[in-house]
């Protein structure tokens, strides 16, 4: 007997993914800045979906307060840039700040259960939002621009931001992938399926959840950084809006909770809907809500859940296959 991790499919997919990343890296050199900006938005959505799924899909932590970290990332960038730090290093610092703040928050947030946790996180996001609004140096309630980015010529600026978005997305996807592949990976998937049973088999559930919480804090912080870099202006009501959580829930539920591939699919779908109904408005939101409700009722495992079930397809080599040892291999 032998244990195999990579399958033919996952090898091909891994190779295709690397090619895609390389191709995407050339996008800013070929396309107009407005297309680059749109694709940056797509990458931000992918990052958000993957992070919310890490939290909810694997840790069972349904947060409606991840906008707290988005806001910390965005305002952290403005703050550090205001201290005279060059904008791009300021963005890295702000991402680390979001991760660092997620640790003390986890100390009490993770004591809460299920719905209490969900609402508790929302309250935490609101509290941070209010604190920001009280600070005149951060533009108080009216918002603030990341003026330091104006030193770059717009085309270059858009390209840098896109590359940063691509780098962040790849880094966080890779982080989750290697985490799921590591010896901890099986434990994380076990927590996803049955927390108590995992506990009784020796899985340190609380510590694993904290790990996912900090990862999601970092990732959502990175997304916040990218949002301010992409739009150059933020205000507390929109960056700390619970709508971010609604988007994340939508993408993950439609794509497939607790699957690696699903949230990416969900993000692409949301992006397609957003670009088709550019006017926004109430009907767009009604449509989003109706889609989410239909998925919850008819396809509770999401798009990728169905693919996995029907086709047994697994693109990501996080599983284990037991195969007969080949003679003389």
């Amino acid at each position: 007997m032998q244990v195999q991790r990579w399958t033919r499919t996952s090898r091909w997919f891994g190779a295709a993914f690397c090619v895609l990343v390389v191709v995407l890296a050339f996008v800013p050199l070929v396309f107009d800045p407005d297309i680059v900006q749109k694709l940056t938005t797509l990458l931000i959505l992918v990052l958000l979906a993957v992070m919310w799924n890490a939290l909810a899909g694997y840790g069972g932590l349904l947060s409606v307060g991840q906008q707290a970290f988005i806001g910390i990332g965005a305002y952290g960038t403005v703050f550090f840039a205001g201290q005279g730090i060059s904008p791009y290093p300021a963005m890295l610092l702000a991402t680390v700040l979001a991760g660092a703040i997620s640790l003390p928050i986890s100390l009490f947030a993770l004591r809460l259960r299920a719905a209490q946790f969900a609402i508790g996180m929302w309250v935490i996001a609101e509290v941070i939002s209010i604190v920001v609004r009280l600070d005149q140096n951060l533009g108080a309630g009216t918002g603030i621009s990341l003026i330091q980015l104006n030193q770059y010529e717009p085309n270059f600026r858009q390209a840098y931001t896109f590359w940063l978005a691509l780098a962040f997305t790849v880094i966080f996807l890779a982080a989750l992938f290697f985490l799921l592949r590591s010896p901890l990976g099986a434990s994380l998937r076990a927590i996803r399926d049955d927390e108590d049973a995992a506990r009784s088999l020796g899985v340190r559930v609380a510590a694993r959840k904290r790990l996912l919480f900090v990862l999601a804090g970092l990732g959502c912080g990175a997304a916040g950084v990218l949002i301010v870099a992409n739009t150059l202006f933020i205000e507390p009501t929109s960056i700390f809006s619970v709508q971010w959580s609604a988007y994340m829930i939508f993408m993950v539920l439609v794509g497939g909770l607790g699957t690696f591939e699903g949230p990416i699919l969900g993000a692409i779908l949301l992006f397609a809907i957003q670009t088709t109904f550019t006017q926004g408005g109430p009907w767009y939101l009604v449509g989003l809500g109706a889609t989410a409700a239909l998925f919850a009722l008819l396809l509770p495992r999401g798009l990728w859940g169905v693919v996995e079930e029907r086709l047994g397809l697994q693109l990501i080599a996080v599983g284990f296959r037991v195969v007969e040892k080949k003679p003389d291999a």
């Binding site: 099986a186 998937r189 599983g319 284990f320």
Partner: peptide
Amino acid sequence: RPFVGMTVFENVLVA
């Protein structure tokens, strides 16, 4: 209480 989304082997591997 099996981990339904994992294979039989992976279930045992967790333990």
